[in-house]
Each structure stands twice: as C-alpha cells, then as structure tokens.
C-alpha cells in the first residue's frame, strides 16, 4: 500500500494510539463480542448450491438439470428446483489510521483510532465466532499490517495484533487516490457476499472517497460505514474564542465557538447525509458513534447494520 503524505503533526513514526481506558484491546474486544450474537447469516441469494432453497416457475433457458419432474407430474406445472448459492461471508475491516484518528479530547475515554480498533476487534471476534473469515485493510497509518481474510483460532489474535501495532499517521485530505489505494486489496479479494466495514471519522477524507467506497457494492458486497467521532467533534466542545488547527492539511481557524456551533453541526450532518444517502442507495448502511458511547452499543449497531445490508 502506498503511503499517504505525512501529516505535519503526526511526525515520522506516527502518533501511537492513545488507548486510554479502552485497553487492553483483546480482552475488551472478547468481552464485547460475547455480549453480541450475530446469529446465522444464510445467504438469500439463490443459485447453484447444496442446500434446497425452494421452487420457482420454469422459464426458458433455465438449466434443465434442476427441472423438477416430480412437480410436473404432481401439479402439472413446470417448476425448477433452487439451491442456496454458496456465498463469501468474509468480513473486511477497513480502518482509517490517518493522523486525525489520533485525536482524543479530555471528554473521551481514548483516541478515535483506539475506539475504532476496539469496535473492529469486537466485530472480528463476532465474525470469527460464526465462522466467517476476517480481513483487515488500512487507510493511512504507520506500522499498519494489512491482513487477508482468514478464519480460525488464530485469526483474532492476528487481527488484534495488527490493530494494536498501528499508529496514526498520514494526511488523506489532499490525496484523492488514497481511498482507492486503501480499498484496492479489498476490492480484489472480497468476493460476492463479503461485508466491508469502513471505520473512519470521515472529516478529512478526500472527495472521491465516497465513490471509491460505494463502488465496492457493485460486486454483491455489503457496505457499512462507521463514523467514529470524539465528543468534542460531535458538538464542537469549545467555548469562547478559539484557534483550531486541523490534524490533516494546513487549516487553521480562529473563531467564536458559540457563534459557529450550529453551522458546524450542520456541516457535520451534511457529511453524514451524503454518505448515508449514497450507501443506502447501494444497500449499504451508515452508523455513527461517539467515543464516549458504550462500545457494545456501537458493535451491536454495526452488526445490525451488517444484517440489514445483507438482507
């Protein structure tokens, strides 16, 4: 994966994840996952398979191997037997590790990246517990280790180890192709039926990020976008006159917090609206979270969104 332009604030080695009270990741992820039951997720997609999926009227061109002679004799109607298609149930976690994800305010239990990693690890645990393989991809970051989709007993440790070893770095705000590069391995490897969860703050992604991500839905994949915001980011938690510097890009703003709070919230909601609309149109889902929320609620919300996306 080509690296992003380093952020002016993240330094050469990136910003180590501020886990705060979210550590240790593995233990907390397991605990979280135990409280979440994903349930069976049979594919509703019909096609060649081993398990009978029901009848449907014959149409010319259907494979005659599946023509049900018995139904013709019994009901005098031409029917075709259907079987559930074998689908890829892999969960691909794409985690944003750009510099902005290292932000943690005094009101948050940990950095956004820590929170996102915890949710991602919990999701991985849930997926692995149902036998689905889990893959890992990164947007930005330093020391990040992409993982191919794999299942099995050691898969969770690999995912958790990769998440623990990451550091926030890189500036995606000006790199239009950053998202394509990050999702390229996922696009190549994820097959039809795979679920791709993008964990990001979505505040400084490039313009083409939405189109790049939503394009993944074309291959029969399910998309879920999870926005992780710090409490300060959610409500512009400042007062009076402040001078704010963005983590990515050279944006410095001097403003009166009370005066611009409504406009800020409006713009934040605008981003969510745009992503949500686009994803909904492609069967995907948009989930929002704030790092002072209980992570279990977020994991459940994501699992629910995944279920809805697969439905």
């Amino acid at each position: 994966m080509a690296e992003l332009r380093p952020s002016s604030r993240s330094g050469k080695d990136g910003i180590p994840i501020d886990w705060g009270s979210l550590a240790p990741l593995r233990l907390r992820a397991r605990t979280l996952a135990e409280g979440v039951y994903a349930g069976g997720h049979r594919s509703v997609r019909k096609g060649p398979g081993v398990e009978f999926g029901g009848h449907r009227p014959y149409v010319p061109g259907d494979d005659l191997r599946f023509f049900d002679r018995r139904a013709l004799l019994r009901h005098d109607r031409m029917m075709v037997r259907e079987f559930e298609t074998e689908t890829d149930r892999a969960l691909w976690l794409c985690v944003d590790a750009t510099a902005s994800m290292a932000y943690r305010s005094s009101r948050a239990p940990g950095a956004k990246l820590a929170y996102g990693a915890l949710v991602a690890a919990a999701l991985a645990r849930v997926a692995l517990s149902t036998g689905d393989p889990v893959g890992l991809a990164w947007l930005g970051g330093r020391g990040t280790l992409p993982l191919p989709a794999s299942s099995g007993r050691e898969a969770f440790d690999r995912v958790a180890g990769a998440l623990e070893g990451a550091a926030a770095a890189g500036d995606a705000s000006t790199d239009e192709a950053a998202m394509e590069r990050a999702l390229a391995p996922v696009a190549r490897r994820a097959r039809r039926g795979a679920v791709i969860v993008l964990v990001s703050d979505f505040v400084d992604l490039p313009e083409r990020a939405l189109s790049a991500f939503s394009a993944l839905a074309a291959g029969g994949r399910s998309l879920v976008a999870l926005r992780v915001l710090d409490p300060n980011e959610a409500d512009l938690g400042f007062s009076g006159h402040v001078r704010l510097r963005a983590s990515e890009g050279d944006v410095v703003v001097e403003t009166d917090a009370e005066e611009v709070r409504a406009i800020y919230r409006e713009r934040l909601a605008g981003i969510a609206e745009r992503w949500s609309t686009e994803l909904s149109g492609r069967g995907g889902r948009w989930v929002e979270s704030v790092t002072d929320q209980p992570p279990a609620d977020v994991v459940r919300a994501v699992v629910r969104a995944v279920a809805e996306a697969r439905a």
């Binding site: 932000y103 400084d204 402040v242 704010l244 963005a246 410095v252 403003t255």
Partner: peptide
Amino acid sequence: RQAEEQPFPPAKLVPPT
C-alpha cells in the same frame, strides 16, 4: 496575543469569525 492553538481534526468544517 492570539488565542492558544488547539488541535481539532474537523477544523475545516468550522467557519472563521
């Protein structure tokens, strides 16, 4: 003097006054 600078990732969403 200028207000103390604070990091804030979504700074570009904040309009200046």
